[in-house]
Design a protein around this nucleic acid. Sequence first.
DNA 1: CTTGCTGCAAATTCTTTGCACTCAC
DNA 2: GTGAGTGCAAAGAATTTGCAGCAAG
Lengths: 156, 156
Amino acid sequence: MACEAAFRDELRRRGLRMTLQRELVLSALHQASEPVSAEELHQSIAAQSPNVDLSTVYRTLGLLQELRLVSGYDSAGETRYELLSLHGPHLHLLCQSCGCIEGVPPDDAHGFVSALAERFGFEVQIEQLVIPGLCQRCRERGKVARPPWVRFVDPA
Amino acid sequence: MACEAAFRDELRRRGLRMTLQRELVLSALHQASEPVSAEELHQSIAAQSPNVDLSTVYRTLGLLQELRLVSGYDSAGETRYELLSLHGPHLHLLCQSCGCIEGVPPDDAHGFVSALAERFGFEVQIEQLVIPGLCQRCRERGKVARPPWVRFVDPA
DNA sequence: CTTGCTGCAAATTCTTTGCACTCAC
DNA sequence: GTGAGTGCAAAGAATTTGCAGCAAG
């Protein structure tokens, strides 16, 4: 896996060290098929190596983000992480009803992104972009966005 | 102010009540020139009415969101709230370096939004949309994105 | 051996909740 | 009056930090 090598190299260059825990985090990220929370990552690691602490997972994720190997974005109050190298740069569609996530290539966004650059001088970080909305399935079922309007139901 | 009337009406329709605290929250939102956190709102209310509790601010914000008078989005781990009626529907550019926020009209996004609708059946909630990136100022100064890579500095 | 890294526990931050009392209607 | 709303305090959830011992280079 190329990104383990990249990780190792970058650690060396910075005078940091490769450890079993860091390998485990990276490996667990590889195995994940969709963005995972720190907690989920911790649990999947715990399956084979029960002594890795959650705080170590957080520290490693921070490190991996710094090295631009992993991206994280906020979803419903928790951060979900994902290997960048795995799917290439892309953005996410996050359904506000069911919470499902779809990764989409950035192609469709290019016009939008360059419009923002031209008109506002704003440089979009597309890998960090999360689009809130309703997925097809939920739309068809007449679902409504969840956060934070679920607390009580319209009495009408 | 039209939205206070709207608030009042909607409360009545639901059998809920207008209170001083709710008026204060709404009024503080009006006075805010940019999206505010619950904490900031609480402080600005406290200036004139020190006994309003932070939890009441949260509860009122939840209510206002439900009535679609206020929108909230996540920025750097905290939620920032904003009156919808004040500026009309729009999206936000959030600079990952300085944290500044710019509201932009949704026009530029239309192509993108309809592309997502067509290709993925995804209905974007544009008022909830926060675009991460770098503002012009920070870009010119060669700044780099902040969260969560600020924890240590590149030794190179 | 040196110093970065880890596990553990405690601390922080933002937000929510339980409850008795109060006030809008 | 009655039940919705409030303040207060405590609980929660996600994440961070301090520290002493461990281990990678």
